[in-house]
Design a binder for these strands. Structure first.
Lengths: 230, 230
DNA sequence: CTCCCCTATATTGTCGACAATATCACCAAT
DNA sequence: ATTGGTGATATTGTCGACAATATAGGGGAG
């Protein structure tokens, strides 16, 4: 797993590191969905004070990776059909807007970089390396999101939504056979951005996300059917 | 000021109350934009421990009302042209989607309630009560947001974006002369929702927000021009 | 046998103290 | 005079202890 993004390399506190560690453990399923997060337990396990754990849990809550009730405690979110639906609706809205803004604000250099990324992506699709396909897909979306140049939008997508999405993907084992078809959609989006056609870029991105959603929902359904433990 | 929304009346901790109090003081300008939030100072002022203040500040950060740097401290966000622009871009995306979903998910009862709200709103517009116009506008938007039935979307808009928007509105003294024209836009949106035309509802809502943005930006500009202290 | 109440226990919420870090002022050297 | 380094001070980060609340289990009454 590549260290995703690091805008500025500020000093990092223990709480920061604990938060990142906990987030990873939740997303990757080391800490199971719907499981309880005991503060004392975690503080011994990660060898930090409860205050640090509490701060980390608070941040996880604002990422919507855990839910919290006063005087009761925090639980990792459950993976549900409805949750996935809601998640993708928000993603469609935000990332559609990101594509629209990217068509306006991306520099020519950034666009040509995006195009070359697409080329390398094409090659790896043909050779069939599933892992790198995932990474390539992420990279593609990140560049467009960053290209929007809207810090709020970027933060919402990168800091919270995408971790939740990844949690669904990882835990439902979605290495999707959809990658080859997605490639064409990526190509068209880049074309629209390159043409500075904001309207079209947004529409194509929203379509692309809708297709991805349908694919994910199918996977989730079959998961529920095969394993009744949900 | 009406107590906005209270989904479930769970037990409320000191940190909750302090968070809400601080948020109000920031939004209403009791604590000025760009000012520093000293933890010790606030803990004496609000008569709670620093731990409580820290938790409140953390939550304010996830609302994007304050910004934080490790080992340095937290500051209230600054009100800038760019910030307003970014804010409204996100709002357009999210609330457009909310309108789309509301057209699908609102019950007939909720829709007729919305229509009657529109009627009372029309009367107050004619009588010219500016304060209630504001409240009425908020109420209108809230109902549609809630009508989306998407908890993520609702939380993003109600718990963070709208407080930021209100901060801009309150502090720039926007009691806008735009209310009468906005009324027609509201009417058309309701009509689209009533017709279950999701596509149109989204489009009209996005337009409506775009107009509001342009109006806000004008106000902000004249503010900057009149008072150089920014 | 069932239901309710009450107590014991464990967990979260809150607090004050200590450690680590940044900031500012002052001084010296070039 | 300006710049670089150094120390004092104030602020944030972290910790362990105490208080308040929820939960589970047992005992008693109906």
């Amino acid at each position: 797993m590549v260290p995703l993004i690091l805008l500025t390399d500020q000093p990092v506190t223990t709480a920061d590191k604990t938060f990142i560690q906990l987030r990873q453990d939740i997303v990757e399923g080391v800490i199971r969905p719907s499981s309880k997060l005991s503060e004392t337990e975690l503080s011994t396990k990660y060898a930090v004070s409860r205050a640090v754990i509490r701060e980390a849990i608070n941040r996880l809550e604002s990422c919507r990776l855990v839910e919290r009730k006063a005087n009761v405690g925090a639980r990792v979110v459950a993976l549900t059909q409805d949750g996935l639906e809601e998640l993708y609706q928000v993603r469609e809205a935000l990332e559609g807007m990101a594509a629209r803004l990217a068509a306006v604000h991306m520099t020519e250099t950034e666009i040509s970089d995006l195009k070359s990324l697409l080329s390398t992506h094409f090659e790896t699709v043909q050779s069939g390396e599933t892992y790198y396909q995932e990474a390539g897909d992420l990279d593609f979306h990140y560049r467009i999101i960053l290209g929007s140049k809207n810090t709020q939008l970027i933060s919402m997508l990168v800091d919270s939504l995408y971790h939740l999405i990844r949690m669904y993907r990882v835990q439902l084992g979605m290495a999707g056979p959809r990658v080859t078809t997605a490639f064409d959609e990526h190509r068209h989006i880049v074309q629209a951005i390159s043409n500075r056609d904001a309207e079209l870029a947004e529409m194509l991105m929203r379509r692309h996300i809708l297709y991805t959603k349908q694919n994910s929902q199918k996977t989730l359904l079959s998961h529920i059917n095969s394993q009744t433990r949900m």
